[in-house]
Amino acid sequence: MAAGGDHGSPDSYRSPLASRYASPEMCFVFSDRYKFRTWRQLWLWLAEAEQTLGLPITDEQIQEMKSNLENIDFKMAAEEEKRLRHDVMAHVHTFGHCCPKAAGIIHLGATSCYVGDNTDLIILRNALDLLLPKLARVISRLADFAKERASLPTLGFTHFQPAQLTTVGKRCCLWIQDLCMDLQNLKRVRDDLRFRGVKGTTGTQASFLQLFEGDDHKVEQLDKMVTEKAGFKRAFIITGQTYTRKVDIEVLSVLASLGASVHKICTDIRLLANLKEMEEPFEKQQIGSSAMPYKRNPMRSERCCSLARHLMTLVMDPLQTASVQWFERTLDDSANRRICLAEAFLTADTILNTLQNISEGLVVYPKVIERRIRQELPFMATENIIMAMVKAGGSRQDCHEKIRVLSQQAASVVKQEGGDNDLIERIQVDAYFSPIHSQLDHLLDPSSFTGRASQQVQRFLEEEVYPLLKPYESVMKVKAELCL
Rank of each mutant, 00 (worst) to 15 (best):
H86D: 02
F208M: 11
L440Q: 08
L165W: 00
R374V: 05
R196L: 14
L341N: 13
D87S: 03
L423E: 05
D422S: 07
S15K: 06
V414G: 02
K170M: 07
A260D: 03
W175Y: 07
T347A: 14
K470M: 14
L355F: 14
G393I: 06
G203D: 00
V475I: 11
A230Y: 03
E48P: 01
A78M: 11
T201C: 04
G156M: 01
T321F: 07
S289P: 00
L331P: 00
D430M: 09
I427D: 01
L124M: 11
F212R: 04
D349Q: 08
R300F: 08
M312I: 13
T450V: 12
H91E: 09
Q41A: 10
S23T: 06
D215V: 09
W39M: 13
K391W: 06
F28L: 09
P56D: 14
R149D: 06
L124C: 13
R245Q: 09
M299W: 00
V414P: 06
D215M: 13
S434F: 11
H93P: 01
A22I: 12
Y34P: 00
N68C: 10
L271Y: 04
Q221V: 10
R372E: 05
R20S: 00
E81F: 00
S19L: 06
L121C: 13
I57G: 03
V219C: 07
M292Q: 03
E25C: 09
A78D: 14
G197S: 12
L179A: 12
K101A: 12
A388W: 06
V247T: 12
L121K: 08
L355M: 14
G203L: 01
R452W: 06
F460D: 01
A230I: 06
K170A: 04
T267G: 13
L443K: 03
F345T: 12
T201M: 00
K477Q: 14
K170T: 00
R459I: 12
V405F: 15
L222A: 08
V247H: 12
T154V: 09
E462I: 12
L272K: 06
T94V: 15
A110P: 09
M380P: 00
S9V: 14
V390M: 11
Q397F: 02
Y243M: 09
L183S: 10
R40S: 00
N71T: 10
E213G: 14
V88S: 09
F449N: 04
L482S: 11
S448N: 15
L130W: 02
L44Q: 13
K35S: 06
F157I: 05
T227R: 07
A127I: 02
D216M: 09
Q210P: 10
Q184G: 12
H97N: 13
L53I: 15
Q356Y: 13
L179S: 07
L252V: 15
L135F: 13
L469C: 14
E279A: 09
S438F: 09
G8W: 15
F379Y: 03
I176A: 09
S334V: 01
T382F: 03
M299L: 04
E473A: 11
E48D: 05
F145A: 06
L55M: 14
L121G: 08
Y114P: 01
L128S: 11
Q416Y: 15
E425G: 11
K233H: 09
M278C: 12
M26A: 05
S407F: 04
R452T: 14
D398W: 08
D422F: 11
D191W: 09
R85V: 14
H400W: 01
S151N: 14
R196F: 06
E80V: 09
E50F: 07
D32F: 11
S253W: 09
L469V: 15
S253M: 15
G5H: 07
I265S: 12
F212G: 06
R459N: 15
M387K: 05
L132P: 12
I369T: 08
G418Y: 02
T204M: 05
S112F: 02
M278Q: 04
L131S: 13
V390E: 04
T158W: 00
L84P: 01
F95I: 07
D192V: 09
R85E: 00
I72L: 12
L84D: 14
S253Q: 11
I269H: 03
Q356M: 08
K82H: 12
F232E: 02
E64D: 14
Q416K: 10
H159E: 02
K229I: 02
Q455R: 14
C172A: 09
T267R: 01
Q439T: 08
R374E: 05
A163V: 02
E401L: 09
T354K: 04
C180D: 04
D144W: 14
L406W: 07
V115H: 04
G54R: 08
I269D: 00
G156N: 02
S19I: 04
T321E: 00
A230V: 06
L484G: 13
Q41S: 11
V168G: 02
L272C: 08
L124K: 13
N336M: 08
E383G: 02
D32M: 12
Q356G: 12
L355R: 01
K35E: 07
Q177E: 13
Q397K: 07
A77L: 15
L331Y: 06
V363D: 06
A388N: 03
T204L: 04
P366I: 04
A431N: 14
P467K: 08
T202S: 14
D333C: 06
R20T: 01
M26W: 01
I123S: 12
C99T: 13
I358V: 11
F449L: 04
